[in-house]
């Protein structure tokens, strides 16, 4: 290991602020990107599902119209 203790690891030889700022912002950006991409996928699928169920309801209503 390059570090004697966890304290040393966090301190990063005095540069701790800069190193963890870099890693922190990086992971924040990457996580936001992934979350945004997955959320978009779910939204698209949900929209399609809603549209399909709406079409089904319209079809049902049209079929019933003939029977009333």
């Amino acid at each position: 290991m390059a570090f004697e203790s966890i304290g040393d690891f966090i301190a990063m030889g005095g540069y701790g602020f800069y190193v963890w700022l870099s890693y922190g912002l990086t992971f924040l950006a990457l996580i936001i990107l992934v979350v945004n991409s997955v959320a978009k996928k779910n939204k698209i699928l949900k929209n399609v599902a809603q549209r399909l169920s709406r079409e089904q309801r319209i079809k049902k209503a049209q079929n019933m119209e003939g029977t009333l």
Partner: peptide, 13 residues
Amino acid sequence: LLFAPADYQQGDS
């Protein structure tokens, strides 16, 4: 982060 040695000039940064 854990195993690579620190740089001679730049330290851990």
